[in-house]
Each structure stands twice: as C-alpha cells, then as structure tokens.
C-alpha cells in the first residue's frame, strides 16, 4: 500500500509545481503578450504612425513648442518552468527560447507604456528614446527561487507648433 503511495504521489510532489508553472505560466504570459500586441496595433492604427523614435530631431523637421521627459518601466521575471528550462538549455548553449519570450514580452509592454504615457501627458511625439535593461535579482545556482529584471525606456516628449 505504501509503495503505491510513493510511486503515485512522489513524482507529483516533485514535478507538480514545475508542471503547474509550465501550464499556468504559458497561459498567463501568452495572454499578456496578446494584450500588449493588441494595444500596440490599435494605437498604431489610430495614430497612423509610431510616435516614438530614437532620432535626435523629429523626422519631418518642425518647430517645437515645449518638451519634457517621459519615462516608462516594467520589472518582469521568468516563471519557474522558464528558469528550469533555461538552466538546462544553458548547459548545452544555444538559443534560450524561454528567456527570449520573457524579454520580448517586456519590451513590447514597456514601449506601449511609453506611447500611452506620452499621449496622457499631452505630447505629440517622443524623440531620442533609450532602452535600458538591468538585473534586479538573479537566480544564483538555483538557491534563490526567483529572478527579476527591469526594462526601462525614456525619451523626450515634444509638442509641435501647429
């Protein structure tokens, strides 16, 4: 009786959290990515062009009325499953697809936040946009079961002379 218990439930206790993290994490992150993509597409269709650029001057040269700093950030972490899969994959090297997905989600989201923040503050365009990535907390030898990095975007919002 006891051996059956161990055979059935021991793997579940060991692998249960990681399987849960795989299923729930994929669902959650795909939903977030889809929402970020939808918001970006809606925004771009509505404004007919992208309002952010990393040029020093707005491209069709215009006279500028006022300006101010616009900043947006997100701190984002990979799921347990993504950390484990990335850890195993990094033994062999090559492309770490799970981490790529997290970074992509973070970049999409932070760029969209920058656009929304600029519109809310009343700017027409954002020039000289810089993106910055920093590790907030790292997963050291699997000791620390969490990991986070921050993606940060800033630029100068401008208001054109009409």
């Amino acid at each position: 009786m006891e051996s059956i218990f161990f055979i059935l439930f021991y793997p579940l206790v060991i692998f249960g959290p990681i399987i849960f993290s795989w299923v729930a994490g994929n669902m959650y992150q795909n939903g977030k990515l889809k929402s970020a993509e939808d918001r970006t597409n809606t925004f771009l269709n509505h404004h007919k062009k992208d309002i952010v650029s990393n040029l020093k001057n707005p491209f069709p040269e215009t006279t500028i009325q006022t300006s101010g700093l616009v900043i947006a950030n997100i701190s984002i972490g990979p799921s347990w499953w993504q950390m484990t899969a990335g850890g195993i994959k990094s033994i062999f090297g090559g492309k770490l697809g799970t981490y790529e997905r997290v970074m992509h989600l973070g970049r999409m989201e932070v760029m969209q936040r920058l656009r929304e923040e600029a519109i809310r503050q009343g700017w027409d365009e954002v020039i000289n946009v810089r993106l910055d990535t920093a590790t907030v907390k790292s997963n050291q030898n699997g000791k620390n079961k969490s990991s986070a990095f921050e993606i940060f975007a800033y630029g100068t919002g401008i208001k054109k002379n009409q």
Binding site: G25, I71, N73, S75, I76, G77, M83, A148
Partner: peptide, 23 residues
C-alpha cells in the same frame, strides 16, 4: 509576493512600483 509571482512569471508589480518611486 514577487517570489510567488515567479511561479507563472510575467510582471512583478511590486518591483515596478518600487523602482519607479526610487527613480
């Protein structure tokens, strides 16, 4: 809380706010 959020991954709102305030 951020450690718990790491189960599914994604945004860690506590850290986002903290870093925003500090900046």
């Amino acid at each position: 809380l951020a450690g718990l959020k790491n189960i599914v991954g994604g945004e860690l709102t506590g850290y986002t706010e903290l870093l925003q305030e500090s900046r």
